[in-house]
Simulated scan of single mutants.
Amino acid sequence: MRALLVVNPAATTTSARTRDVLTHALASDLELTVATTEYRGHARDLAQRAVEDETELVIALGGDGTVNEIANGLLHDGPAPRRLPALTVVPGGSTNVFARALGFPNHPVEATGVLLDALREGRERTVGLGKATGTPESGDAEVPARWFTFCAGFGFDAGVIGRVEQQRERGKRSTHPLYVRQVLRQFLKEPHRRTGTITLEVAGREPVHELVLSLICNTAPWSYLGNRPMYAVPGTSFDTGLDLLGLSRLTPSAIGRYGTQLLTSTPDRGPHGKHAVSLHDLTDFTLHSKVPLPFQVDGDHLGVRTSVQFTGVRHALRVIA
């Protein structure tokens, strides 16, 4: 099988020696080409080229950002699972939500062993993905649609992601304590935490107004804090449409309550209460805001938007796991 291994050398949890060992192990079973990313968006470009070269498999060695770029490169011209290379992952980031959702261990060497077994046994499936299209601000260039593998966010959580990226640009490592600190800082600076500016519109339903936070999930768990899984909307699956958790208030008591519910969530029970709304298996919906708000997909901050349209696309991509 002709395969491309896309390596992010800045991946949080892999060393050069580990990458060499993994490359050697994969090359024993595959006709392997190795490419190292050199700039933001390079993994997307490499994956797009892999489609043109009729490569059979693309392997991401990196974190969720690397996986997202590869997925967007593979789907540059839209879903066609039987004609596109399959995707698989060796986790190398700090959280690795997509890899863990596929069932891989959160350790690159162990995950490589599982991947080789999956290849030998022909374990293949298709998964649904989300697609987000943001409306550009007046005078700005058109914003291309962006695919996401496990989550997106509009509002509060995207603001946290933006703060984390700023810290990483200053040389900070991406760690879970860093995220917790930025949640607290975002909360203290959030001007709309008592009355939100987001309206959710779904065809055939009454609009939901004044949301402060909106999490869009494509799989469960939504994320991890260390090894603790967090379920924003239990029951989310690669085999259904998108799920959404919206919160209309983030006062100190509310954020304490919903934060605790998120940390203690289970596959059957997530955040709930009078200021929480959960919707399951959505195909198309739109989030509008009265003011520009931060927007993220798969943990990648994409600037601010006033409107984002979301689409859940079933059977978008083949994966090996």
Rank of each mutant, 00 (worst) to 15 (best):
W222L: 11
A10M: 09
H301L: 05
A47L: 12
F98C: 05
W222K: 02
L262G: 05
A27G: 14
T175Y: 14
S278A: 14
A316R: 09
E190P: 03
P9G: 07
L57T: 04
S265C: 06
Q186A: 14
P105N: 10
R120S: 12
G155R: 05
T133S: 13
A43M: 10
L213R: 03
H272T: 11
G303W: 09
H209G: 01
I161N: 09
L262M: 14
L116A: 08
L293I: 04
A50T: 07
L61S: 11
A158D: 08
F98Y: 15
D45S: 07
V208L: 12
A11G: 04
T306V: 02
G139A: 10
Q296T: 03
L287W: 03
A254M: 10
T219L: 04
D239Y: 00
Q309I: 02
V97I: 15
S94R: 12
L317H: 12
A35T: 10
G312Q: 04
L263G: 06
E142N: 06
I198A: 05
D77R: 15
G256E: 06
T135M: 07
S278K: 06
D64R: 10
A203R: 13
G235K: 07
Y231V: 04
R40D: 03
V127E: 11
D64P: 06
P177R: 14
H315K: 11
V34W: 12
L26K: 04
F285Q: 00
A80Q: 10
T175G: 13
T36I: 13
L247S: 02
L61D: 06
G299W: 12
F295H: 05
S248V: 00
R257F: 06
P271H: 08
G73Y: 00
L61V: 06
H42N: 14
E52T: 10
P234H: 14
L119T: 11
D140W: 00
N218I: 01
G270R: 08
G303Q: 07
L317F: 13
H209R: 13
P267K: 01
V67Y: 07
L242V: 03
A232Y: 00
L262H: 02
T12D: 11
A71S: 12
P177A: 13
T251W: 05
L188W: 07
D300L: 04
D157T: 04
E56F: 08
G259S: 04
G204R: 10
E56S: 15
P81N: 06
L213M: 13
A25C: 03
P267I: 01
P252W: 13
P234E: 07
V297G: 08
Q261T: 03
R185F: 01
S138H: 12
A132H: 09
P229W: 01
P105A: 11
T37R: 14
N227A: 15
V97K: 02
E201D: 12
G162A: 15
S278C: 12
S15N: 10
E52D: 13
N227D: 15
H275R: 08
